[in-house]
Design a protein around this nucleic acid. Structure first.
Length: 413
DNA sequence: AATCGAGCCAACCGCCCGGCC
DNA sequence: GGGCCGGGCGGTTGGCTCGAT
């Protein structure tokens, strides 16, 4: 295969994106969607290849990106997901609203790996480093999943005691005061986005069907579309749909901009069906979404504050949202989800379709989600059917191959 | 103040996969 | 069936920032 044909074209810019390029791309996608990525550069007047445009959009320009430092809950979730999924960053990212696979991958390589090693945990196998290592230091597609089963009796020390992230609003884009972060000054300013979003939301293009699917998220009920049951850790929604835990490709809605929906649990206010938000709301929410983001370096640490309740110093595990308590510490494993023992939430249960939904969680679900209960159960039922009958869900976009791997990994439990 | 090294992160590269012809 | 093309993913890297000296 090698390089894409578009990459052979001459005069294609490479490297960092300029604000002008960002604006062009953002304008184009805002108005028309990306459609075929290979045609985006030409239509948008960019001298970039389609892949570069796609990456820029996914990793930086998407308005639902959270930016900022990762919360302790997010880091713990990443560790847990990595233990099961391995280096499947995109699938891990699917469980972290507003986070990109690239971001998570960077975090893992630069920070989490180190923390785990300091804790005596092999980041690849999630086993104690003292034990004979079976894996190499290279990427491991799924060894951790198998390793996870062997870790059953060994409570896993996850990350250091959570330190509340500083609740500092992003000053990444101080108006008229370029920070020392010159490299990132090549990125759009907050005002840039605010202006753009407000402009676009009030423009006739914004109301066209072309834009539906990536901006008016509020109109979309991801949960019901995909049978998703979610739980909130603070404002962090945790997806309880095993299909989604297993496969990012189970995207709830096929849109012209599916990348925008990489997360099915974006924490965005829901609007009742048939009562979409007014045009002005789109702009407002976009502004809020962006404002919720922050800088990774220039003090934006607490950017999660808008979307994620840091829950003080409580660990992610205190919420016992994990379906495999054996991966958590003793203390953590002993904690129960409200009304449901964490021991009740095991992979075999997922595989067999016995997926209990805590009453407390059900009651906590927002109205749109409450309607998803039946669908969620249906989805789980379908999962069960697949497991027993090897029948793929017709309505599901799940990757059976991935699930087979997971199933095989946990089949011996 | 200058230099250096470590860390971080945006972007690129190479490959795989699926759809289409 | 095979080739082409586009989308997507994971690994890697170049360069910038920042803290230490």
């Amino acid at each position: 295969m090698g390089r894409h044909s578009c990459c052979y074209k001459q005069k294609l810019r490479k490297g960092l994106w300029s604000p002008e390029e960002d604006e062009k791309l953002l304008r184009h996608i805002t108005k028309y969607g990306h459609g075929c990525w290979s045609s985006v550069p030409k239509q948008a007047g960019l001298q970039r290849c389609g892949k570069s445009c796609r990456l820029r959009w996914i990793n930086y320009l998407r308005p639902d990106l959270k930016r900022g430092t990762f919360s302790q809950q997010e880091e713990n979730l990443i560790v847990e997901l990595h233990a099961v999924l391995g280096n499947r960053w995109s699938q891990i990212a699917a469980q972290l609203p507003g986070r990109t696979d690239n971001e998570i991958k960077n975090l893992w390589n630069s920070s989490i790996k180190k923390k785990l090693k300091q804790r005596g945990i092999d980041p690849n196998t999630h086993k104690p480093l003292a034990e004979p290592e079976t894996g190499s230091d290279h990427g491991n597609p799924l060894p951790a999943a198998a390793a996870a089963t062997s870790v059953k009796s060994k409570p896993m020390a996850i990350l250091p005691e959570p330190v509340p992230a500083p609740l500092v609003l992003p000053d990444r884009f101080p108006a008229g005061s370029p920070s020392g972060d010159d490299r990132r000054s090549a990125t759009p300013t907050k005002e840039f986005f605010l202006n753009r979003f407000i402009q676009e939301s009030s423009s006739p293009h914004c109301q066209s069907s072309d834009t539906v699917g990536y901006f008016p998220l509020q109109q979309l009920d991801y949960g019901s579309e995909c049978g998703v049951q979610t739980t909130s850790v603070g404002n962090l929604s945790v997806n309880h749909n095993p299909l989604l835990w297993l496969n990012q490709n189970c995207r709830p809605i096929e849109t012209s901009c599916s990348e925008f929906l990489c997360s099915n649990t974006v924490s965005i206010p829901n609007f009742p069906p048939g009562n979409p938000p007014p045009a002005s709301v789109g702009g407002a929410n976009r502004a809020q979404l962006w404002h919720a983001g922050g800088s990774g370096k220039s003090g934006g640490g607490g950017s999660n504050g808008a979307n994620i309740d840091l829950q003080g110093s409580s660990s992610f595990f205190d919420s016992s949202l994990l379906p495999w308590p054996e991966l958590a510490s003793d203390k953590e494993a002993a904690i129960h989800i409200e009304g449901v023992s964490s021991e009740d939430l095991r992979w075999p249960d997922y595989l067999q379709g016995a997926f209990p939904v805590p009453a407390a969680i059900q009651s906590q679900s927002h109205a749109p989600y409450s309607d998803t209960k039946a669908e969620s159960q249906l989805a789980v039922s379908g999962l069960s059917n697949w497991h027993h009958g090897q029948q793929q869900l017709p309505a599901s976009d799940m990757c059976s191959k991935d699930f087979q791997r997971i199933s095989a990994a946990f089949g011996q439990i």
